[in-house]
Design a protein around this nucleic acid. Structure first.
Length: 534
DNA sequence: ATTAGGG
DNA sequence: CCCTAAT
């Protein structure tokens, strides 16, 4: 019975979500299985509205097709009517004004490169040195929308138009739902999915591999290159390559990244035209290049093979269990590749690293959570039945990806090592999750909204929400000052606003369980609260 | 196992 | 983030 109350509450919350426009709110809880669909439509509407403003002629066909595609409203056809009706009115449907505004600000405005960098950092949680505005914008929009196709169609093909929203292209259309729309005026005969690679890689010089100091190369010759950028594509910086391959492997569910895991074994299984070639390393690093045969040319494109995302842990354990010696060999290989150096522990916390006995159990513990990226070598000296008893676990300074870097504690537990900055898209996901499922249902949110982020435990979500709440209540201070001090971009005001709204309505709804159960007036109350804030 | 709250 | 108590 308590269960039932809870569930009812949940439904109420879900339907009372601010993402529902007032029109949607009429949908009663029995239709809640439709609710998700409604939300999706909602999201699409977000995208269409701006289009209607800029490209009126396109809008009808677009929205039409979308409704058709998403179809299958089944029994709840009446609600779909409401949706369409609502769709014609801007004021009614714009249920996520904050987010769309945010997107507009971040993606469309003519931000300076510096600003783009900041946005980039906020989005991906790390710095970039790439100076190419276009690239930055594309990457940021991908990060914000968690979609890669978007960029390919909108940014690359229409690259002349993307800069200005006045030109009527992409504008707010950052939503992945448009990825499949036939690109207008696509004159290239290449598959669109490949254009992005060509764009940057076509002219990749062989020289690429000779140059040892790639890292911030972009800084120095960017000026010149940017000048003639129109004519000739710039050679990708190492950073670009890294980030590109990261996004690729992040966004595409195994599209072409079926890379073998683990540093030593960069074996790749390939699809169609793309072939990976292993080159011998520069400066101790293993460089994997991808041989693209596009348009008949065989172009070697350096890339960083990315490891499959998400929890290798179990497999890892299993692997170790069943074939420990294999691991030993691999570790040896890596060790050899690194020139048998032993690395200094870089952090005070490192002192917690075990001086482990050679018990296999301990070895296993050591492996837990060690990132298996080929660029970041985790060196285990003496794994396989060796005589060395001292294990060292090295994590390279920058941990990206979801391989959670953990450090074994003396007590046998493991603790995550670094803070992983929350990216903007993560925050947005969190907020959306809370609005759907309600604050407190962290495991639900984690399962449904954060399925792709294997790090971020439900506890993390909870903590972050707590922080967001705190931030939303605190006075919004001057952006520049805090940005300088924090380093991380402050949570955009609209999001904080949303957080506060959510918090407030949940505070209203949750506490009085008994009263919510009784009345039919409850919904009305919720509704009023809702519209009051929207 | 999940959640809330303090550290 | 981590840890712990409570459910």
């Amino acid at each position: 019975m308590l269960q039932k109350v809870k569930e009812e509450q949940r439904l109420r919350l879900a339907c009372g979500s601010p993402y529902c426009s007032s029109a949607y709110l009429i949908v009663d809880s029995q239709c809640c299985d439709q609710h998700d669909k409604l939300l999706h439509i909602d999201a699409k509407l977000q995208c269409e509205i701006p289009l209607q403003e800029t490209v009126p002629s396109l809008a009808p066909s677009l929205s039409e097709s979308h409704f058709n595609q998403s179809g299958s409203f089944g029994e709840c056809s009446h609600s779909s009517d409401k949706l369409v009706a609502g769709g014609s009115t801007l004021s009614v449907v714009t249920t996520k004004p904050d987010f769309s505004k945010l997107k507009g600000e971040i993606c469309l405005d003519n931000l300076s490169i510096k600003e783009l960098h900041e946005t980039f950092k906020a989005t991906f949680g790390r710095e970039t040195t790439v100076k190419d505005k276009q690239w930055l914008k594309r990457r940021i929009s991908m990060g914000l929308t968690n979609s890669c196709d978007v960029s390919v169609t909108s940014f690359i093909i229409k690259d002349n138009k993307l800069v200005k929203k006045g030109n009527g292209e992409i504008s707010n259309c950052m939503d992945g739902s448009y990825a499949e729309d036939p690109p207008i005026g696509n004159q290239k005969d290449l598959p669109t999915s490949l254009v992005s690679q060509l764009d940057y890689h076509q002219v990749v010089p062989e020289k690429r591999l000779e140059n040892p100091n790639l890292d911030d190369n972009s800084g120095s010759d960017d000026h010149q290159t940017e000048q003639r950028a129109a004519k000739r594509a710039r050679k990708p910086t190492k950073r670009y390559i890294e980030e590109l391959s990261e996004v690729e492997s992040k966004e595409s569910n195994g599209r072409l990244m079926n890379l073998a895991k683990n540093s030593g074994h960069g074996l790749i299984s390939l699809k169609s035209h793309v072939r990976l070639v292993r080159n011998v390393p520069l400066g101790g690093r293993t460089v994997v290049t991808r041989l693209d045969s596009l348009g008949g040319y065989g172009i070697q494109v350096p890339c960083v093979s990315r490891v499959r995302r998400s929890r290798p842990r179990k497999n890892f354990m299993a692997l170790l269990k069943f074939n420990p010696s294999g691991m030993g060999m691999e570790a040896t290989l890596v060790k050899k590749a690194l020139g048998d150096h032993s690395f200094p522990l870089d952090d005070g916390k490192e002192s917690r690293v075990l001086k482990a006995s050679s018990t296999p159990e301990h070895v296993h513990h050591q492996f837990i959570g060690v990132p298996e990226k080929d660029k970041q070598f985790s060196v285990m000296s003496a794994i396989g039945l060796g005589h060395n008893t001292e294990l060292k676990c090295i994590n390279s300074s920058r941990d990206s990806d979801d391989n959670v870097v953990t450090v074994p504690t003396p007590k046998g537990g493991i603790r995550r090592k670094h803070h992983r900055a929350w990216t903007l898209s993560e925050v947005m996901k969190l907020v959306e999750g809370v609005s759907r499922y309600g604050a407190g249902r962290w495991s639900e949110i984690k399962r449904l909204a954060f399925a792709s982020y294997s790090y971020r435990t439900s506890v993390d979500l909870k903590d972050k929400w707590r922080n967001l709440l705190k931030a939303s209540l605190a006075p919004q201070d001057n952006g520049m000052n805090s940005r300088k001090s924090t380093g991380a971009m402050p949570i955009p005001a609209p999001i904080l606003l949303k957080v506060r709204e959510l918090a407030e309505m949940q505070a209203q709804v949750l506490p009085n369980l008994s009263s919510t159960k009784i009345a039919g007036s409850t919904r009305k109350n919720v509704h009023e609260k809702q519209t009051g804030f929207l």
